[in-house]
């Protein structure tokens, strides 16, 4: 980790996390100025409530999907089908629970959840098959499932919105665990697990090597294909969990609108977090920050009283500013590094 002589300031300046962290701080500050009680937390019945908790809870599905997306993007891929997977997972679980003999039984909910996640794994394996085994461009390989997947979800629910009333299933999106919303706890555990697994083992290094140069990695004995495949399976699993959260939160499955455009939000979160879309450099912490920035933006729009019709323009403007800052930052970094002689500048 970095040379010892590097001062803290130097390391901060180089860290890709500084910009997104600063953006998040600015956003939070704006909120505190606009609504003074923004950071206040209340404890009701042993459960935490407050704007910050709301941001975490509403941002959990996007953050989870962005987590899976980070690993896919790190291997030079992209997964457009996660939104469709969200819809399919919710549809499967709700259809199973609604069709069971006892729709309120905890066992029914568990079977429904297992079914949904199992199907999500299959969908991820399908994407991985197309990308890793057939060598199809990720963007188009996952576009297939993005287009067909929502149709499949409609097929499962027969085009209806399926509502369920299962207490255990409702817990996932609306319940509390240790005072925090269950969705937040689940997302936090998955983030921690992935961060540990990729940064404390060689897995993270292998993922980066595949992202930098798949062929060279394969020739040097890295099982590139398996790693890429694993990325898509994990991304689909994250999407499946997020889909369950979303449908559990509203206790219904809406095949048409659940997770619509969530893949774009997730990709934005990943890119804002400093992960390169060209692969090879990724940041789990950055992705978390990116997802929080997006959710805080949405919340800011509501709390600051910005008219809802302007909210999308506002969001787009912030995103564009962040991208431009990052683009110039990348260039500045390249300029600074060139004299070190890392590589000869191409004409």
């Amino acid at each position: 980790m970095g040379t010892l002589r590097e001062s803290l300031g130097e390391r901060l300046r180089r860290s890709p996390l500084v910009l997104p962290a600063a953006a998040l701080l600015v956003l939070l500050l704006v909120n505190v100025v606009v609504t003074p009680g923004f950071l206040a937390l209340r404890v009701v019945d042993g459960h935490l409530f407050g704007s910050v908790v709301d941001i975490l809870k509403n941002g959990a599905p996007t953050a989870l999907i962005a987590l899976g997306m980070t690993l896919v993007v790190a291997t030079r891929g992209i997964d457009l089908s996660v939104g469709a997977t969200v819809a399919i997972a919710g549809s499967v679980a709700c259809t199973w629970i609604a069709g069971a003999s006892d729709p309120t039984d905890p066992g029914t909910a568990l079977v429904g959840i297992v079914l949904a996640l199992g199907l999500a794994l299959v969908l991820g394996a399908w994407n991985g098959l197309l990308v890793a085994a057939f060598g199809i461009q990720p963007i188009i390989a996952t576009l297939v499932l993005m287009t067909a997947g929502r149709g499949l979800a409609m097929l499962i629910t027969d085009g209806q919105i399926i509502t369920v009333a299962n207490p255990l299933f409702a817990e996932l999106g609306g319940g509390f665990l240790l005072g925090l919303p269950v969705a937040v706890v689940v997302a936090a555990v998955m983030f921690a697990a992935v961060a540990l697994l990729t940064r404390r083992t060689a897995l993270g290094l292998l993922i980066e090597s595949v992202g930098v140069n798949p062929t060279a990695s394969r020739l040097s004995g890295v099982r590139a294909r398996g790693i890429v495949w694993g990325g898509y399976v994990f991304a689909a699993l994250c999407a499946g969990v997020a889909g369950l959260m979303i449908s559990s939160n509203v206790t219904a499955a809406d095949a048409n609108n659940a997770g619509l455009w969530i893949e774009l939000d997730a990709i934005l979160a990943v890119v804002i977090g400093g992960t390169l879309l060209t692969g090879g450099r990724y940041s789990i912490g950055g992705t978390l920050l990116g997802a929080l920035i997006l959710q805080t933006l949405t919340t800011t729009v509501y709390t600051a009283g910005i008219p809802p019709e302007v909210s999308l323009v506002f969001k787009a403007a912030v995103i564009i500013v962040v991208f431009l800052l990052q683009a110039e930052k990348v260039r500045a970094l390249l300029h600074r590094r060139r004299p070190v002689g890392e590589r000869v500048a191409t004409p």
């Binding site: 774009l264 879309l277 302007v310 999308l312 995103i319 991208f323 431009l324 990348v330």
Partner: peptide
């Protein structure tokens, strides 16, 4: 600025849709 087309046009998509509203 050498930003990926996917990302730039995605931002453009949000911007145009937002302007509609």
């Amino acid at each position: 600025l050498d930003v990926q087309p996917f990302v730039v046009t995605l931002a453009g998509m949000f911007l145009a849709r937002g302007l509609c509203y």
